[in-house]
Nucleic acid binder design. Structure first.
Lengths: 166, 166
DNA sequence: GGATGACGCGCAATATTATTTCTTCACGAG
DNA sequence: CTCGTGAAGAAATAATATTGCGCGTCATCC
């Protein structure tokens, strides 16, 4: 099963860094109960092996004037792999699109978008998104407020699950 | 307008830390073109004033055995503020729910969820989400793949917009 | 026009951290 | 039993973070 190469200390490191990505290594070492050097080695290993994809400051987009957040549900004409990829590439190139997920079911993609204001978003919607080749339908929903934004892994669930399988 | 208290150096700091949250302060200072001490002071100010909400390691949930990601569209019976808040509180308490956004339109909430496998998610869906008080309807969509996951602010757009208004 | 104060920078000194190196210990195979 | 492997910790060193202080700029107000 996945995660089998990680011992409890590794998982604790991941959990701590997920909650505070700028924690110093000495603090981290203290929390997970080992000394600094092996802690740093584990951290590097986790980074290199892909468990940690990167570190990012969480910037408040509203404070910066991006008042509008929108989820866009997109349906395509063709679901051939080449066409799916082409659409995904466009999403990567659109700065207002921050996330692009392919879904099962009726809708092909869900996009999370941000914009400084409605008119900016609207012009993106009309000129870029719905105008893009192969796009059949777009339904959008404005975000009114977000009360939980903790992307990542619920380590509580992970530990519980591992302890049961032991 | 928003962001008006930030000068170009502040915005550069935010952009750099958004892309690499563990960058050392000396490296950051070098990139934004000032010396280390004032750079650190700016960084602290940005943290305290809420522009930076935190720093987080981006942990690969699939590597850790969370193979399933789902978007859940939730409709409620009552949209009274007390009932909305009550639902949001439940979402905060459910570890499998990682994001909770209130929407306009037909659907009241969109949730981003993760789970180790389908049966875990299904049991959460049946026993918790649809069973919760005031929940009228739930439609779920499995994520097949995600090709862009860069939450945050598109600083390119911000700079372009500010330069135009100048 | 020049004094004055606020603001923000950079230098230099100091305190903390990160990182390397080397030694030690525990464990499994031969 | 002893060698090889892997990982931990201690100590030393290199980098970084952080603090304290003096300087220049700019706007305001006599």
């Amino acid at each position: 099963m996945a995660g089998s190469k990680l011992d409890p200390i590794d998982r604790k490191i991941l959990a701590e860094l997920q909650s505070d990505g700028r924690m110093t290594n000495v603090e981290l070492a203290k929390r997970v109960g080992i000394s600094a050097p092996p802690c740093l080695r584990r951290m590097r290993t986790l980074e290199e092996s892909g468990y940690i994809r990167g570190y990012h400051a969480q910037v408040d987009s509203r404070e910066l004037g991006f008042e509008v957040q929108v989820f866009a549900m997109v349906g395509l004409e063709s679901q051939a792999e080449a066409d799916l990829s082409a659409f995904e590439q466009k999403c990567r190139d659109w700065p207002l699109v921050r996330e692009c997920h392919m879904l099962n079911g009726e809708v092909d993609f869900i996009l999370k978008c941000v914009a400084p204001d409605l008119s900016t978003f609207h012009s993106f919607l009309i000129s870029d998104l719905t105008a893009a080749e192969n796009v059949a339908s777009v339904k959008t929903s404005l975000v009114i407020r977000s009360t939980k934004e903790e992307p990542g892994v619920p380590f509580e669930v992970l530990e519980e699950r591992l302890s049961k399988s032991a």
